[in-house]
Design a protein around this nucleic acid. Structure first.
Lengths: 230, 230
DNA sequence: GTCTATATGTAGATAGAC
DNA sequence: GTCTATCTACATATAGAC
């Protein structure tokens, strides 16, 4: 039974400080390589080399490869979910009795993600690509269910409250379109640059974030604000 | 030098009819497995087994693995591009001097893709997932450049004509968001079902296509119709 | 906890008979 | 064109010394 197995059993003893540092280095290296090359494209050996440890140590700290992958996604998922739910709670408090605006609900979901990717460095940018991989591949459905769906459900329900006449299928469809657009900020900046004139494109992340919010807000409003076509 | 190498050199002799059938079976099997498991996740051996041929025959007809991957994406790219450009040309003819509506431009790009995925069977649905993989991974940038960018550029320029005051960066950003939303129809139906109530979700592809068009049309119009925020 | 050594399986690719 | 057999490299994972 390994430390990082997914069944949640606690370790027998507290790990040493040095062990924790080693473990972090391994997880960070794995996060980077998985994000860059995908699950099958990143080998345990590559990860060990990037972390500067023998390969056996990756398995010791990370367990089997699929458990390592799960754990790396899970590791930052709680922080991200907490940021989103906290933002939502505060927005509700600010509004008192009035219902939230669509733009506010969207911003509570999208901005915590973008802010971490923008301001908290390479780890979160790699993590963002990892999330995109998991979200677009049904083979990782169990990871989405465990790490993302609970929070996503909260936001889908919030949208349903704002547009009570829209059926749930339309709401979840529009929400997934919005998430896909958001994730594409992390996976496809290179594509935007190739299709635009490319001048200073990478520097305009803030501007693109506004475009994203605008895009999703009006797309969702048009989708949910009127009956679905037949 | 193999038949399918990417340098475009012609074969020395015309292949036999039987050879062509074998080749098709291999390419179809590869398309399916690459779409399902990604480039590294699908092995030459898996592909050979799915096609019912010895592994050596996959290399003979497909060349090195990366050339095979490229070729499979390229194989249907031309048909898809042609459908899109033809739809655009016809829409222009229908309109005479009047400029195209945003909705029409979007439909010319999106509908050929969705119609093939809907009505032309499993091959195109697998291909759609393959396109999503390539479009979201910078490692395959050369494939996007060769197979998708020329047509994408035409549509970006068409959008720029409709919104001449919008800068090109905003146009390409909004376009990539739209493409990401479109591709998510092929990769994440399972996610929409998980987040919606799930009842009959898979059967409502047509309805979702309308939602997609509505979403992208109003998202783009809001994004491009007013000056970008600062 | 860490490392060396290794067990065991599978990967991509090709040689050469037919 | 096709297939068998095989080369070589690399994969995941663990055993067992320290």
């Amino acid at each position: 039974m390994t430390i990082l197995s997914t069944d949640g059993k606690p370790r027998q003893r507290a790990p040493s400080k040095k062990s924790l540092q080693t473990r972090e280095r391994i997880l960070d290296a794995a996060e980077n390589l998985f994000a860059q090359r995908g699950f099958e494209g990143a080998s345990i050996r590559d990860i060990a080399e990037a972390a500067g440890v023998p390969t056996a140590l990756v398995n010791f700290h990370g367990g089997p490869k699929d458990a390592l992958y799960f754990h790396i996604v899970e590791r930052r998922a709680k922080e991200l979910s907490d940021s989103r739910l906290l933002a939502l709670q505060r927005a509700r408090e600010r509004n008192g009795d009035r219902p939230l605006a669509l733009r506010d609900v969207l911003a509570c979901f999208i901005m915590p993600y973008l802010e971490k990717a923008m301001h908290e460095g390479a780890h979160w940018r790699a993590y963002a690509r990892l999330v995109a991989q998991v979200s677009a591949d049904e083979r990782w459905k169990h990871i989405s269910q465990a790490c993302f769906d609970p929070t996503a459900q909260v936001f889908v329900e919030e949208l349903s409250r704002l547009y009570p006449q829209a059926d749930k299928m339309a709401v979840s469809t529009g929400f997934v379109f919005s998430v896909a657009s958001m994730l594409t900020m992390s996976t496809s900046l290179w594509r935007m640059e190739a299709l635009g004139d490319g001048a200073g494109a990478a520097a305009l992340f803030e501007e693109r974030a506004q475009i994203l919010l605008q895009f999703c807000e009006h797309g969702l409003d048009a989708t949910l604000g009127k009956p679905t076509l037949t």
